[in-house]
Structures are given as structure tokens and as C-alpha cells.
């Protein structure tokens, strides 16, 4: 790769930006997120068209139960805050603080995924599978894709903690933590849209 000598070291930048190669990775990750925005946009569009097409199945109003969804929302928003704290600790050079807050983020993420799986299982038991209607198909796919992203993020955070424990805070690890945090906040934003466009609007009759 192209480690261009004159900018090889940029000590007044945060650790993950100091090495030009790692900094390339951050830019690349932003482009990946841009592409993921389009992915979710398509799923939102499909849901927007299908949310009223319930065939013989249940309506959004019948399916959604806002209590647990609000708890899920709070769990995920809190995890975004703890993820911010992890980056704050990384900026201060504290590997231990970073690991601890990453672990907290990871646990909150797991709790979120667990609640969502529970919610989905309950929906299926009460209303049947997504075969029932286009609405159910698009609902499970949109929310499930987000949940799948969160699950992947949980695995990613776990691998980060292992890496921190084995290799300490290198520029490579710092870049991976930073891109993880971008990913995690991005999922938070997607969830806000899901909460509003799917759950809250579904409860308006």
C-alpha cells in the first residue's frame, strides 16, 4: 500500500488517524456506511408501500406493543452513549476504560437483540409467520435486518475486546474501535427511524 512518506506520521491527530493507512480505512468505512444507508432506504421504501397490505393477516396496530419497543429503544440509545464513552476513554489512552465501556456496549446490544428475538417469537406465536402478508414480510425483514446488523456489531465488539486484551491500543486497533463506533451510532440512527416510521406510525389509527 501507499504509505506516502511525508505524511507517515501525524502525531497531533488522534491515534486512529496518525497512520495514513489506517486513516484510509476510516474513509472507506464511511463509504461502506453510505452504501448501507441505501440498503436500509430500500427496505424502508418496501415497508412504506406494504404496511397497509395486510391481506388476511394482522394490522400493524394489532401487532405492535409499544412497551417492550420503548425498552429496546432505551437500551440501544444508552449503548450508543456508552460507545461514546469508550471512544472518550480511547482518546485518553485508557485501554482498561475502553475495554470496560466496550463490554457495557456489547451487553446492552445483546439485551436489545434478546428483547427483539423475544418480541418476534411472540409475534409469530400470536399472529403466525410472515407468510401471512406482505406487511409482515416487510416488517420482519426491515427490523430483522437492523437486528442482524446489531448482532454482527456485538460479535465485532467482542472481537475488539479480545484484540485489545492481546495487542493493546495500537493504531490498527484504534481504527477498528473507531469504525465500530461509527457503525454502532449509525445503527442507532436507523433504529430511530424504525421506531418512528414503523412502530409509532403503526399505532396511529
Amino acid at each position: 500500500m501507499n504509505a506516502r512518506a511525508p505524511e507517515a506520521s501525524r502525531p497531533n491527530l488522534p491515534l486512529e488517524f496518525q497512520d495514513p493507512r489506517e486513516s484510509l480505512g476510516i474513509l472507506g468505512f464511511w463509504f461502506f456506511l453510505a452504501s448501507d444507508v441505501v440498503l436500509f432506504s430500500c427496505l424502508f421504501a418496501v415497508y412504506a408501500v406494504y404496511h397497509g397490505r395486510v391481506a388476511a393477516g394482522p394490522t400493524p396496530f394489532q401487532v405492535f406493543d409499544l412497551g417492550p419497543v420503548l425498552t429496546e429503544t432505551l437500551l440501544l440509545l444508552t449503548s450508543s452513549f456508552t460507545c461514546g464513552l469508550a471512544i472518550f476513554m480511547m482518546r485518553r489512552g485508557s485501554t482498561r476504560g475502553l475495554s470496560v465501556w466496550l463490554l457495557v456496549t456489547l451487553l446492552l446490544g445483546m439485551a436489545f437483540v434478546g428483547m427483539e428475538v423475544h418480541e418476534f417469537a411472540g409475534d409469530i406465536l400470536r399472529f403466525g409467520t410472515w407468510h401471512k402478508s406482505a406487511f409482515l414480510s416487510s416488517f420482519f425483514t426491515l427490523v430483522g435486518t437492523h437486528g442482524g446488523h446489531v448482532s454482527f456489531g456485538v460479535l465485532w465488539a467482542a472481537a475488539l475486546v479480545v484484540r485489545l486484551w492481546r495487542q493493546g491500543l495500537t493504531p490498527g486497533t484504534a481504527r477498528r474501535v473507531y469504525t465500530f463506533s461509527l457503525y454502532w451510532h449509525f445503527l442507532d440512527i436507523i433504529w430511530i427511524f424504525i421506531f418512528t416510521a414503523v412502530y409509532l406510525s403503526g399505532k396511529i389509527t
Binding site: 391481506a55 388476511a56 393477516g57 402478508s133 406482505a134 409482515l136 414480510s137 416487510s138 420482519f140
Partner: peptide, 9 residues
Amino acid sequence: STFFTIAHG
């Protein structure tokens, strides 16, 4: 799933 089957919306 039933994204493109007319019978289920």
C-alpha cells in the same frame, strides 16, 4: 415470505 405474491398482498 410474500413480497411478490399477489395472494398475500
